[in-house]
Structures are given as structure tokens and as C-alpha cells.
Amino acid sequence: MLKGHQTWVFETKPTIIASAAVGGPSEAKGPLASDFDLLHGDIRLGQDSYEKAEQKLQEQACETAIKKANMKKEDVQFLLSGDLINQIVPSSFSARTLSVPFLGLYGACSTSMQGLSLASLLVDSKFAKNALVCVSSHNAASEKQYRYPTEYGSQKPPTAQWTVTGSGAALVSDQGEGPKVTASTIGRVIDMGLSDPFNMGAAMAPAAVDTLEAHFRDLDRDPSYYDLIATGDLGRVGHRIAGDLLKKHGLNIPEEIFTDCGILIYNKDQPVVMAGGSGCGCAAVTTFGHFLNRMRKGELRKILVIATGALLSPMSYQQKESIPSVAHAVCIEI
């Protein structure tokens, strides 16, 4: 049901009956390592290309989620998945392996919450009984596509972020036990004219702020409703900007409940990560792994995840276009 301008309230409360997170070597060294179902020491996962490795990440995340729900892939009506690679081939190819009716998504790093919103919508409207969401990113594959070859020696500024190697999957169902998706706010595309691809946090922060404001306005809620409000991959730079911008707009989110997946996923002493994690996989593995585990343990009851996406392409950047951004927020309660 539509509430306000851009918020869906799911009256049947679709349940995330199972979720899975698969990660790579940098994620294994991070503080959330124990929340992953599977961690790989080899960034190639034994495959002969990074793109195939990303496909493998998705396949493993989907298979693990289905297995954890004690289901077979035939029980899943729809697979909604996305990634960052051109023409989202890792998603399409892993959907080929799973052979489940497939809808490919692209929302840059906001795809995880875009997918979860759509899957919940399918289940809530009874167009599906079980819908699987899967999102992935791969550090080397993204570097190759968006920036320079992985072994190229250039000095990154302190605002740069590190693309997460990982895939998160969530199985949304019309019955069963688990955290429930109760509402989601679909964001507008916001462009503040920033054009530095090594400073995505600052480019995406206004989108997160816009969606957050819309969420609280549409639902007439106060931030204190939530135990945790997490942005997707703003990193240390963008998260600080978003927090200050919210304060400037008169929306005070207490600092102890306001966090960012890109900050949580890595340790501060991991030097390569600079300002924090980024990529579709960042919000996906942190939400579908860490946050949902904490909810199942009873540590968190109501959370809001705002996945932010920078909608640039390597070509748009070279053509001196700015970086438009989008953010989608999903409310999960148990």
C-alpha cells in the first residue's frame, strides 16, 4: 500500500525466512567475518576470471539461502538479482545456473534494497510465494571496469573507497519465521554536481538524506522508532556528511544508532580500504549477514537500511558528466 509520496507499507509483512552472505579475502579480515556463511581466501575463487568469480559468489549465496530455508530452487518463483558489471552478466549467468524465473536489476550500489523492496512487493501482492534477492560486487572486477587495472600503481586519495568482494542473498516468503519487511521508501535520483569517482561518499550522501527525510515524512515516524539506521556504502566521508546534512535539515538521528555498512565491514587498520567499503555487496552482506543475524539473536528489533547507489558509468565520467545518486530505504522488523 502506498503511503505518502514514495513509501510502500507491506501489510502482509513478507518474511525473510533465510539469508546468506559470501565474502572474499578482505572481508574475511574484517570485523564481520563471523557473520558470513562462506569466506574465500582466493579473490578468483579458483575461476579463470574475476567476472566468473563474481558469478560464483552469487551462485553460492543463492544456494546457501535456499538450503538454509530447507527449500529447493523449484520452490522459488522469482529471482531478482543485480551487480555492477556491464550488462549485469554475473547476475544473468548465475540465474542461468539456478534456472529460476529471473528479473535483472541495476541500481548501482542501491540494488540490494531495490531488490528487497521489489521482492517484498511481489510477495505482499501475492504475485509470488517465495522471491529470492541476490546482489554481488567483486573488488577486482569493479576496479577493472570503473577504474584502472588492479595492479596499476596509482595513488588513491583518502576519500576513495574499497569495493566489497561479496554477495548477499535473502529469501522473502509469505510465511515462516524471521525478520519481516514492513516498509520501503523508493528514492529519487539526486545530483549535487559532484564528479569525482574517488569521492562517491560525498556524491551519494544527499540521496541518502533525501530518502531518509521522505521515509520519516511519509510514515510520520521519528528516528527513535528504530534500533539501528544504517546507510549502505557512504564510508567514513559520506556518512559524516550525511549525518551533518540531516542535522542541518533538522532531522536528528542519535549517533549511537546511525551507522554505515561501509564503515562496519572493515577494520580501521586495513589500510587498503581508505574511507571504507563500497559496492552492491557492501550493503547486501552487511544487511543479509550481520544485521539479520543480530535481529535473529534479538539484539535488534527494528532497523532501517538505506542503500545508496552512484549512477555513473566509466564513459559518463570521461564525458565530464556529474554523478547522480539514488537511495532506497527498507524497514525490517522482528
Binding site: 583518502p158 576519500t159 566521508v237 559524516r240
Partner: peptide, 16 residues
């Protein structure tokens, strides 16, 4: 608005 935001963001970014 974009100029104001960029100024706002720049003040909060670590410099090279």
C-alpha cells in the same frame, strides 16, 4: 543549492 552542498561536503572531506 549544488554549490552550497559542495562547499558543505568539502569542509568535511579529508584532504590529500
Amino acid at each position: 543549492i549544488q554549490q552550497e552542498y559542495q562547499q558543505f561536503a568539502q569542509e568535511r572531506e579529508p584532504k590529500r
